[in-house]
Amino acid sequence: MNGLLIIGSAIMVFIALIIVVFVLVYQRRMYEKHHKLIELELADQKRLIEAEIRATEREQKRIAQDLHDDTGASLTALRFHIAQLQDSPQKRAMTKTLSETTYKVRNVCNELLPYTLEELGLSDSLSYMTNRMNDTVEIDVNFILISDDGTIQLEQNEELAMYRIVQELLSNIVKYAEASYIDILLTMKDYTMNLEIVDDGNGVIAMPKDHPGSFGLQNIVSRLRYINGSMVRTLRKQRGTTVEIRKSLK
């Protein structure tokens, strides 16, 4: 009976042990499989986002070129014709309106296709963008770069994505935040790029999770995913918002 007792208990313990080991091994396998599936899905998603971004950029480039070549040429022709007219208040008014229109078209072209990005790189393009904003809006926009060698090393597509994100965020601040200043701080340290956009607005600067249907914000999300970046918004106690975008370069 003692033998039976020991054998019976041992068999039960053995069965329980088999179950435990089975769960341990099978769960590990399932985890690996699940993890691989997620990685594949993410890679697919990234490819889709990349294709979408490329298509958008291509379309924007086409519009910018059309604007530059057709509308720009027409405006130049118009300027030439107006110059032929005799000096009069109407001519001066037309010239002024034409200059404003030319300036606006150039701005739109530049927003659609940031030529500066290819030529100057991200930091100088952002600096250029802030200078232009200072000319056009009544907000004090400052750009500060902190980097050992004064440059930001990103791939061209990543630079464009970052540029677009900043563009969208600044546009939102200008439109909704009622801010009097915007500080853009771009830091490069320990293989991490950190971009902070600080304003003294009313804190209504929208984030993707607040407005999931917004096209501009969806663009930010797509581009963040594309560059494997992260974004955090902090509302300050007194007034203002800080948006921090971080990307690891390792």
Partner: peptide, 17 residues
């Protein structure tokens, strides 16, 4: 066993141990 089933349904832990 119920706990094990729920573990196998949602493989969220790399190292169960």
């Amino acid at each position: 066993v119920g706990y094990y089933i729920s573990l196998l349904r949602r493989p969220i832990h790399r190292y169960l141990e």
